[in-house]
Structures are given as structure tokens and as C-alpha cells.
């Protein structure tokens, strides 16, 4: 095992392994609370258990895009400009997309079970989350384009801030869109005015577990990104050196 860890390149370290174990334990804890310990809701039945995935993913969607915006700001600010900020911003957005997708899927499933339809334009939060998803799909698409690292970082930083600034505006417009235009539809709050203590705790467990997963993913994704950048920078020289070192090449030159 010791030989394996020294020769095999990877993104794991002692710290990230401990973090990974904690994240796994958190998820196991969530499963126990979500499926076994917490009761079914009086009105919503077992569909309430979706909340233990839905709420944490929605929270992480906002957290990860918040991290992206913060890192973008730090990159644009001259005194703290470093490609490390840019890397974290990009990685966080990718993971954010994962959690946003999860929040959307669980939200839509919940809608189908309790409201009888998958999509509800009157649900401000659902619509905002969908737009958030689209905003950051654009951001990630922009990042994928080949460019010099600092050019790409600058573009991405501005795009990240543009997208994040849009979130409160989207939310406000969708909120009013419902209240000023349509007659008020069923709100989630009305369905579940008081939340049971164990349920609340289970949501809390979910938030903690998912946040740990997020940090773990971020650490690893960031390390992969670092290795990609290294490869991009030194890949050609290494390939050339290897090519020069080949015996066939030297023989051909010699003869």
C-alpha cells in the first residue's frame, strides 16, 4: 500500500480522505434519518422525504454559485489576482450545476407527487432555480473554450459576476410575476406550516452531509484542474523530451 501511494498519481491526500470518510458518514446518517427515524408527513405522506435531498441541494446550488462569484471578484481585483481563484470558481460552478440539477429533479418529482404536475410556473423558487441552472450552463460553456489561461480567467470572472448579479433580479421578477399576474397558487409554506422537530433535524443533517460532499468534490476537482493546467503548460516539452529520448530516433540521426 505504501508503495502504491507513492508511485500512483492521484488527487487524494490524508486530509481529503478524512473528509471523504466524514462525507460518507454524513450521507449514511442522512439515509438513516431520512428513511427510518423521521416520520411521514400527515398531509404529504412519504413524499416529504424528498425534502431531505431537495433542501440541501438547493442550498448548495446557491452556495457553490456564491463561491464562484466570490472567487471571480477576487480574481478581478488586481491585488488578489491569481489563477487559483479562477480555478476554484470554475470547479465550484461545475459542482453547483450538479446540485442545481439535483434540486430541480427532486423539486419536479415532489411537484408531480403532491401537485399532480411536474412544472409550476407559479413556483418562484423552482423557476428561479431553473434559470440559475441555465445561467451557469452558459458560464461553464464559456470556460470550456480554449484560450490562454489569463484570458479565459478574465472572461469567466466577468461572466460569473454577471450571472450571479442576475439571480436576485430573476427571483424578484418571478416572485412578482406570480403575485401580480396570476391568482396566488398553492405555496409550499401553506402545505407545511409547522415543521416537525425530527424533520427539521433531518434537513439539517442533509445540509451538513451535502456540504461535506461539496467540499470533498471541490478539493478533488480543484486538484484535477491543477494537474490539467500543469499538463497544458508542460505537456509539449515533456512529449518532446520523451520523443528525443527514444532509441529509434537517435539511431536514425546517427546513421
Amino acid at each position: 500500500m505504501t508503495a502504491g501511494t507513492t508511485t500512483r498519481p492521484g488527487t487524494g491526500t490524508r486530509g481529503s480522505r478524512i473528509l471523504g470518510v466524514l462525507a460518507l458518514a454524513g450521507l449514511a446518517w442522512l439515509v438513516i434519518f431520512g428513511f427510518l427515524l423521521s416520520p411521514a408527513d400527515e398531509v404529504q405522506g412519504d413524499s416529504v422525504r424528498l425534502m431531505y435531498v431537495h433542501v440541501p441541494s438547493a442550498w448548495l446550488a446557491y452556495l457553490s454559485f456564491g463561491v464562484t462569484a466570490f472567487c471571480s471578484l477576487m480574481y478581478l481585483w488586481k491585488r488578489t489576482r491569481s489563477l487559483a481563484w479562477d480555478r476554484v470558481a470554475g470547479c465550484s460552478a461545475e459542482i453547483g450545476l450538479l446540485f442545481t440539477g439535483l434540486a430541480l429533479v427532486t423539486g419536479m418529482t415532489w411537484g408531480q407527487v403532491t401537485r399532480g404536475h411536474v412544472w409550476d410556473w407559479g413556483d418562484a423558487r423552482l423557476v428561479t432555480t431553473a434559470l440559475l441552472f441555465l445561467l451557469f450552463v452558459g458560464y461553464v460553456a464559456l470556460r470550456r473554450l480554449p484560450a490562454a489561461p489569463n484570458v479565459r480567467a478574465k472572461r469567466a470572472a466577468v461572466a460569473g459576476i454577471i450571472a450571479f448579479l442576475d439571480v436576485p433580479l430573476v427571483h424578484q421578477s418571478v416572485e412578482w410575476f406570480r403575485t401580480l399576474h396570476q391568482s396566488p397558487t398553492i405555496l409550499r409554506k401553506d402545505l407545511n406550516p409547522q415543521i416537525d422537530g425530527v424533520m427539521l433535524f433531518s434537513v439539517f443533517v442533509g445540509v451538513v452531509a451535502f456540504t461535506l460532499v461539496y467540499v470533498w468534490l471541490l478539493v478533488h476537482r480543484n486538484r484535477v484542474a491543477m494537474m490539467e493546467a500543469q499538463l497544458e503548460a508542460g505537456g509539449l516539452e515533456q512529449a518532446l523530451a520523451e520523443r528525443r529520448g527514444e532509441p529509434v530516433g537517435t539511431a536514425a540521426v546517427g546513421s
Binding site: 434559470l131 441555465l134 445561467l135 450552463v137 452558459g138 458560464y139 460553456a141 464559456l142 461572466a159 454577471i162 450571472a163 442576475d166 433580479l169 430573476v170 424578484q172 421578477s173
Partner: peptide, 10 residues
């Protein structure tokens, strides 16, 4: 389009 359209939704 994918960058601009979601942003101008509001």
C-alpha cells in the same frame, strides 16, 4: 445566445 438569453430573462 446561451450566455445572453438567461441573463435578460428578468
Amino acid at each position: 445566445p446561451i450566455l445572453v438569453l438567461p441573463v435578460v430573462m428578468p
